Deep mutational scan, measured.
Amino acid sequence: KKIKIKIKVYNPETKEVLELEIEVSEEEAEELAKKLAEELEKKGYKIEEVEI
């Protein structure tokens, strides 16, 4: 079964909002969402919402 992940991120420095969407297997979904959120935060983005 495929799971659709939508991530909306906001960069306070540039006032930019990015929306990302990807489909992955159920097993990958939670781990991938967690890794993406961590990487984006390292780059200065503030995570507003992660929906699985």
Rank of each mutant, 00 (worst) to 15 (best):
K1M: 13
K1C: 14
K1N: 10
K1S: 07
K2C: 13
K2R: 12
K2H: 06
K2A: 08
K2I: 10
I3M: 15
I3S: 14
I3Y: 15
I3L: 15
I3F: 15
I3A: 09
I3G: 07
K4A: 05
K4H: 10
K4I: 09
K4M: 04
K4S: 09
K4R: 09
K4C: 13
I5R: 00
I5Q: 00
I5M: 07
I5F: 13
I5Y: 12
I5T: 00
K6S: 04
K6G: 02
K6C: 06
K6T: 03
K6H: 08
K6M: 05
K6I: 04
K6Q: 03
I7G: 00
I7A: 03
I7S: 00
K8G: 02
K8T: 10
K8V: 05
K8C: 04
K8Y: 07
V9M: 14
V9P: 00
V9R: 00
V9K: 00
V9A: 07
Y10Q: 05
Y10N: 04
Y10K: 03
Y10W: 09
Y10M: 07
Y10L: 07
Y10I: 05
N11T: 06
N11G: 02
N11D: 03
N11A: 08
N11W: 06
N11S: 10
P12S: 14
P12D: 06
P12G: 15
P12H: 13
E13K: 14
E13A: 11
E13R: 15
E13Q: 06
E13M: 14
E13L: 13
E13V: 09
E13C: 10
T14H: 05
T14S: 10
T14E: 03
T14R: 14
T14G: 06
T14L: 04
K15A: 06
K15S: 07
K15E: 05
K15R: 09
K15P: 02
E16V: 11
E16H: 12
E16S: 09
E16A: 09
V17K: 12
V17L: 04
V17Q: 09
V17C: 10
V17G: 10
V17A: 07
V17F: 09
L18F: 14
L18I: 13
L18M: 07
L18G: 04
L18E: 04
L18K: 07
E19S: 12
E19A: 10
E19V: 13
E19I: 12
E19F: 14
E19Q: 10
E19K: 15
E19G: 09
E19Y: 14
L20T: 03
L20F: 13
L20E: 02
L20G: 02
L20R: 02
L20A: 03
E21W: 13
E21H: 12
E21A: 11
E21C: 13
E21I: 12
I22S: 05
I22W: 11
I22D: 04
I22K: 07
I22F: 15
I22E: 08
I22Q: 09
I22M: 11
E23C: 14
E23T: 07
E23K: 07
E23A: 06
E23I: 06
E23F: 14
E23N: 12
E23P: 08
V24A: 09
V24W: 05
V24R: 03
V24C: 14
V24E: 09
V24P: 02
S25L: 13
S25E: 11
S25H: 11
S25G: 10
S25A: 14
S25R: 11
E26K: 06
E26H: 12
E26D: 05
E26P: 08
E26V: 04
E27T: 09
E27H: 14
E27N: 06
E27Y: 11
E27F: 12
E28A: 08
E28C: 13
E28T: 05
A29T: 04
A29Q: 04
A29M: 03
E30H: 14
E30P: 11
E30D: 04
E30A: 12
E30L: 10
E30W: 14
E30S: 12
E30M: 08
E31A: 11
E31W: 15
E31T: 14
E31S: 09
E31V: 10
E31F: 13
E31Y: 15
E31R: 08
E31M: 09
L32W: 10
L32K: 12
L32D: 04
L32P: 01
L32V: 13
L32H: 06
A33N: 01
A33R: 04
A33E: 02
A33K: 06
A33S: 07
A33F: 12
A33H: 04
A33M: 12
K34N: 06
K34H: 06
K34W: 15
K34F: 14
K34P: 02
K34D: 04
K35G: 05
K35A: 04
K35R: 12
K35S: 05
K35L: 11
K35T: 08
K35V: 06
K35I: 04
L36W: 11
L36F: 12
L36Y: 10
L36Q: 01
L36A: 03
L36N: 01
L36E: 01
L36S: 02
L36C: 05
A37T: 13
A37G: 03
A37P: 02
E38D: 08
E38Y: 15
E38M: 14
E38P: 00
E38W: 15
E38G: 05
E38T: 07
E38R: 13
E39T: 04
E39D: 05
E39M: 11
E39A: 08
E39R: 03
E39L: 07
E39I: 10
E39C: 12
L40R: 00
L40D: 00
L40W: 14
L40V: 02
L40C: 05
E41H: 05
E41F: 07
E41V: 08
E41P: 01
E41A: 09
E41R: 15
E41K: 13
K42S: 10
K42H: 04
K42P: 00
K43R: 12
K43G: 04
K43Y: 12
K43I: 06
K43P: 01
K43V: 03
K43T: 02
G44K: 02
G44T: 00
G44A: 01
G44S: 01
G44N: 02
Y45N: 03
Y45K: 02
Y45V: 01
Y45S: 02
Y45D: 02
Y45W: 08
Y45C: 08
Y45F: 09
Y45T: 02
K46W: 08
K46M: 06
K46Y: 04
K46F: 05
K46H: 05
K46G: 05
K46N: 05
K46C: 14
I47Q: 00
I47H: 00
I47A: 01
I47M: 02
I47W: 01
I47G: 00
E48G: 03
E48V: 10
E48W: 13
E48L: 07
E48F: 12
E48P: 01
E48I: 13
E49C: 15
E49Y: 14
E49F: 13
E49K: 12
E49D: 06
E49P: 01
E49N: 13
E49W: 13
E49S: 14
E49L: 14
V50W: 09
V50P: 01
V50N: 01
V50C: 10
V50T: 02
V50D: 01
V50Y: 05
E51Y: 15
E51G: 05
E51R: 10
E51P: 01
E51F: 12
E51T: 14
E51V: 15
I52Q: 02
I52G: 01
I52R: 01
I52N: 01
I52V: 07
I52K: 01
I52M: 09
I52P: 01
